[in-house]
């Protein structure tokens, strides 16, 4: 049994607490949030665990195996380090920290330690995106030559307040909060780009970007563009689509399905058009708190983390994998600021 303490009881903290409560090998044994009034609220939801207003106090008093850090991004660095100092497995909501340098410090601190880490890039567990990665790696469309990613959400249709719209607290706008999911997938599918350039635009926000156009160039000639906006009406659920063009066809993946157009037979698929719906992709038994928002993937992510804590297996969205996405994230902001193409070190 993996004993978990959850820090931060906002939307994501409560979601993880609920999911972990359904995983047989996990037990949420303590909760912490700086807002004292939340103690009574969570008790009334059915949560009977001890409640603390300080993560440090929770860690001092409880015997834990893992910490889930679900607080606003600017607090991640200190809280993750606190968990690591107590030798706990750590899961942190994405992004790992507000700056790449901090994320690098945290990820490097893990090297050589037998602790499991995870960052909330849960798209890695969405059926269609996971399977699309497998198909691309198996050469379904031949060698990828170009891609176009689109990230759309209805989140900012007027000036907004709150920490997510303050870059010193959140790390950035639409790119940090939403596009980072696609950057994680691209890193998983294609490795690190050699060069990154980006235009960031403000539509309603005054401190963070609302829209972005990102160009990525990889070794072996692969190039791609990502268009991203959280000011799109009619998209109450975050939508990510990625279309990849290869030597032998085109693969387009979205939340519900994968569409493939093949110019020649590949992996037992004849030439022509193919549609793979998410219901055609096998999955483990899961609990799903919100299928429209990818609830199954949240469950699989937490299940994988808990299983790794038990048996030491690798997980898809470890700190190491997350750091690769956050390196690109950093390059995007530097490119926009310097109005130049950024070449990635160690790409």
């Amino acid at each position: 049994m993996i004993r978990v303490g959850v820090v931060g009881l906002g939307k994501m903290g409560l979601a993880h607490t609920a999911i972990l409560s359904t995983i047989p090998d996990a037990r949420v044994v303590a909760l912490a949030d700086t807002d004292r009034r939340l103690g009574a609220a969570v008790r009334s939801m059915g949560l009977r665990q001890p409640f603390y207003t300080s993560a440090e106090e929770m860690l001092d008093r409880e015997t834990l195996d893992a910490g889930f850090v679900c607080t606003p991004t600017f607090t991640h660095f200190d809280l993750v380090q606190l968990c690591l100092s107590r030798n706990l497995h750590v899961f942190v909501e994405k992004p790992m920290t507000i700056r790449y340098e901090q994320s690098k410090l945290v990820a490097n601190a893990m090297k050589g330690r037998r602790l499991v880490t995870g960052a909330g890039y849960f798209f890695a567990y969405r059926r269609t995106f996971r399977y699309a990665g497998e198909l691309l790696r198996q050469g379904m469309i031949g060698t990828p030559r170009a891609f176009r990613g689109v990230v759309q959400h209805t989140e900012v249709l007027s000036p907004k307040k709150g920490w997510p719209f303050n870059p010193r607290l959140s790390g950035g706008g639409v790119v940090t909060n939403l596009t980072s999911h696609l950057l994680f997938l691209l890193s998983d599918y294609f490795g690190q780009p050699r060069a990154v350039s980006a235009d960031l635009r403000q539509i309603h926000s005054s401190s963070v970007e609302d829209e972005a156009t990102i160009r990525l160039r990889y070794e072996h000639g692969l190039e791609g563009v990502v268009e991203s906006s959280w000011c799109v009406p009619g998209k109450p659920i975050l939508e990510i689509t990625l279309s990849v063009e290869g030597n032998d066809g085109v693969l387009t993946v979205g939340h519900r399905e994968i569409r493939i157009e093949l110019s020649q037979a590949r992996l037992n698929f004849p030439p022509g058009h193919h549609r793979i719906h998410e219901s055609d992709i096998p999955s483990k038994p899961t609990i799903d708190l919100n299928p429209d928002a990818g609830g199954e993937a949240y469950y699989l992510q937490d299940l994988d983390f808990i299983s790794a804590c038990k048996n030491g297996a690798a997980i898809r969205n470890s700190f190491e994998a997350a750091l690769r996405a956050e390196q690109v994230l950093d390059a995007i902001y530097r490119s926009a600021q310097e109005r130049a193409t950024i070449t990635l070190e160690n790409a």
Partner: peptide
Amino acid sequence: DFALALDN
């Protein structure tokens, strides 16, 4: 489903 997960 949230209430179900928390046995509420």
